[in-house]
Design a binder for these strands. Structure first.
Lengths: 140, 140
DNA sequence: AAAGTCGCAACCGTAAGTGTTGCGAATAAT
DNA sequence: ATTATTCGCAACACTTACGGTTGCGACTTT
């Protein structure tokens, strides 16, 4: 797969799961998403920590949504994955002078604001809206 | 520096240049941005291709804004750098079935829309607004 | 008891990006 | 003209992030 495709994978998978409430194994999901079961578990694991999906072990186990797809927004997913597409991950500051430092702070603030705008925008769409209308029949 | 810091570097640099209209060398900029002259030239080179800055060779050469800082938006910079922070770079499609394909298309459309929203948001801020009020005096 | 499934850790390979060096081209200053 | 300065560009090394893969243990249903 391509780079930083976790969000796309999560969206795709949850929309798929929203089509009906059958339990899906990570192997099944991986095949339909064109990736690996472990990758699926890695991504869905984060969503499970955030309470968006539920996993059950053992035969006839797998994954299902923790609540109705209309109650899961894209922001929920984005935040659950710990994504930060816009904002810079601050690490070390080398403020050569106070003016540089102030400027750096202003740039950082702007990017943080942009990140926040993105999240607010994400919060306005739910999985149910992605999933659309049709019910999926592909089980084999 | 950190990863994908090109946008932050460009913002920082252009805001710095907006403080006055002196020509800055890439070495000077790099020192103040905590990076390397070649990295600065790489980033500013893209902005030059987009007509946002002008570079002059030779002694007393360097970089300056191509137009007033109030006429350069963050979207100009973002697009000049060829950034795509949200949208997925499509490469290959493996539509196992038509339903999968439709779903994939819908996810792609959503991420494209989010990318577009980000750009629209970026277009609402100019370098002049980042730069603020004070005039910078640091030359040594 | 057996089989299926997740959970997790470890590792590899690839890709992207920054940092660095070197050299050529252009241009201003002398 | 010569020289010094600066960009332009290509090539390379180094690091980091991430997807992909394997292996094994834990759990639970049948």
């Amino acid at each position: 797969m391509k780079r930083n495709s976790r969000l796309a994978l999560a969206l795709h998978t949850l929309a798929h799961m929203a089509a009906n409430d059958r339990v899906r194994t990570s192997t099944y999901i991986a095949e339909h998403a064109g990736t690996n079961p472990v990758v699926v578990r890695r991504v869905l694991g984060k969503l499970r920590e955030a309470g968006l999906v539920i996993s059950v072990k053992g035969p006839s186990g797998g994954w299902r949504l923790a609540r109705d797809s209309s109650q899961i927004t894209l922001a929920d997913i984005y935040l659950a994955l710990g994504e930060s597409l816009v904002a810079a991950e601050v690490a070390d500051d080398t403020p050569s002078c106070s003016i540089e430092n102030a400027l750096h702070q202003r740039v950082t603030n702007i990017m943080d604001t942009l990140e926040q705008n993105l999240i607010e925008r994400l919060a306005k769409t739910t999985i149910a809206e992605i999933q659309g209308v049709e019910k999926d029949e592909s089980s084999a």
